[in-house]
Design a protein around this nucleic acid. Structure first.
Length: 487
RNA sequence: GGUCUCGUGGCCGAGUGGCUAGGCAGAGGUCUGCAAAACCUCGUACAGCGGUUCGAUUCCGCUCGAGACCUCCA
């Protein structure tokens, strides 16, 4: 089975062929840690977590690099533009690195709850200033950058004479130059479309590093170019990120790599789409975002209730990563219920009594679900196939379908591989703690008492036990020979 | 203004030139001491108008609507 992925560079689905199998290099743009992680951050994290898991499951040895941007970006082209992290630090009277540390931990906590696997390497921009300076030097040496008042800018026009600036995002450089707006503080640049590789730090700028051009800080796009190739080599296999980074960020990354080394660094570019809220992109600049913590606690005026991390994960996985996904309470609630049904069926497999022969073809699940996943990670279809099997499992538990012992084992293994290993779903109720085990045992004990009452037709007692359990949030599902429960 | 994307049944969301997506919600039924769950059946969705075609939700054009990028953004 071959994996195809949609390559933004060619605009087509392509068969994925790693440069050095079985190794795969994967780089994804990580968060800028100056604010709480929000629902938007969950999308690329989960999208590329799925890719990471799928590649590993397929036998690849993946080095997954996801950076932490702790140097911050300029707020504008203007000279008085200020490093965002520095600004926030001043406002809160904290050291910049204190802010960075705080939000990095918050991000990691949220990712862990979402069951997003940690990347193999998580490099920080601030820890790679030297590499970034070296990259800028090479671009300067090759003549594709110029110094201006202590800052270094990339010469887009010169670069475009030989190469193609805009090939990733489909921009036409001539249009961009003709339609240039008069922005303040542009005088340092030769051309409005030039971008900064290194910025001189003003005296009040607290995040600063020495460089051959004086004290300053790296430009917007150099960190990813420097760190991706440092850890993955040049070229490397896959570079991912949100669609909003396509231009200028990734376009500039290509230009930087080519200008520095004469060749492109990335073979497959992958971009996840945005999460929208009331049809509009969720983003910090629009102020319409919901943080992950707010989602998990339900503490936000737009939220009807709290949504578990797994509900969020499932919600995101139910849409294809290249489609926009619209947030709503109704959609989240639907995802939560669907997830419960899926996980309940998974557990139910153990209760199915083996038969002499099977009335269903268990290979169907793995064939169709993996075909979907290998087709540009079509998780919604894979999930739809899983739901087909939820129905079959439920029918089998009622004796309407039958499966042999080995088919049951195969089904369980496949179901687990898909839901747990690849989609990364886990049962919210499965705390795994001593208390959870104890609670489970206690509930089983009460249910046994209720079963006794039922057998002696003491329905008053059996109903009372059920009602009281229901009041505690424990849902009872009677079966022929006992009862299931879930929280 | 420039570049581009999208518009699917109550909601979310796949997909395809002719054949059931799936989930949630809703209706009816089966099962059950009751309830819940589960299972079965159901809604003749594909923005509008033209065109291509034997046939279009799927291809082309136009109209309307929504959105993204062009500035930090996942």
């Amino acid at each position: 089975m071959n994996l195809t992925i949609f390559n933004t560079l060619t605009g087509k689905k392509e068969e994925f062929k790693p440069l050095n199998p079985p190794s795969v290099g994967l780089y994804v743009c990580g968060p800028t840690v100056y604010g709480d992680p929000h629902l938007g951050h969950a999308r690329p994290a989960i999208t590329f977590d799925l890719l990471f898991r799928l590649l590993k499951y397929s036998g690849y040895k993946v080095r997954y690099v996801r950076n932490i941007t702790d140097v911050g970006h300029m707020e504008s082209d203007a000279d008085e533009g200020e490093d965002k992290i520095a600004k926030k630090a001043r406002l809160e009277q904290l050291e910049p690195m204190e802010v960075v540390q705080h939000y990095t931990i918050r991000y990691h906590d949220a990712m862990r709850l979402l069951n997003v696997l940690p990347p193999s390497i998580e490099p920080r921009a601030s820890g790679h200033i030297i590499e970034q300076i070296e990259l800028v030097k090479r671009i300067l040496q090759n003549g594709y950058a110029y110094e201006s008042n202590g800052s270094i800018y990339f010469d887009v026009e010169k670069y475009h004479k030989k190469y193609n600036y805009g090939k990733l995002s489909g921009r036409v450089i001539e249009d961009m130059m003709s339609g240039n707006r008069e922005l303040e503080g542009q005088d340092e640049k030769r051309n409005s479309i030039d971008f900064a590789l290194w910025k001189r730090a003003t005296p009040e700028h607290i995040m600063r590093w020495p460089s051959p051009w004086g004290d300053g800080f790296p430009g917007w796009h150099v960190e990813c170019s420097a760190m991706s190739t440092k850890y993955l080599g040049e070229p490397f296999d896959i570079h991912g990120g949100g669609m909003d980074l396509l231009f200028p960020h990734h376009e500039c990354e290509i230009a930087q790599s080519v200008a520095a080394g004469g060749k492109e660094a990335v073979r497959y570019w992958m971009h996840n789409n945005m999460i929208t809220i009331n049809g509009q992109k969720m983003g910090k600049s629009l102020g319409n975002f919901i943080t992950l913590e707010e989602l998990f606690t339900g503490n936000h005026k737009m939220l009807d209730e709290a949504y578990s991390p797994m509900t969020i994960r499932f919600f995101i996985l139910q849409a294809h990563y290249r489609s926009t996904l619209d947030f709503s309470n109704e959609a989240l609630q639907a995802a939560g219920k669907g997830l419960n049904r899926l996980m309940a069926a998974f557990k139910l497999i153990d209760r199915i009594k083996p038969s002499d022969k099977s009335t269903v073809d268990v290979n169907d699940l793995s064939e169709r679900a993996f075909a979907a996943l290998y087709d540009d990670m079509n998780s919604p279809i894979a999930i739809a196939v899983l739901f087909d099997w939820v129905r079959i499992i439920n029918s089998a538990a009622e004796g309407k379908e039958s499966m042999t012992q080995s088919d049951l084992k195969s089904l369980k293994d496949t179901f687990r591989a898909l839901t747990v290993d690849i989609l990364g779903l886990q049962d919210d109720a499965d705390e795994g703690s001593k208390y959870a085990e104890l609670t489970g045992s206690l509930i089983e004990m009460i249910l046994a008492m209720r079963q006794q009452a039922k057998e002696s037709k003491d329905f008053a007692t059996s109903d009372r036990l059920r009602d009281q359990l229901t009041q505690l949030g424990i849902k009872i599902k009677d079966r022929k020979d006992g009862a299931d429960w879930e929280l």
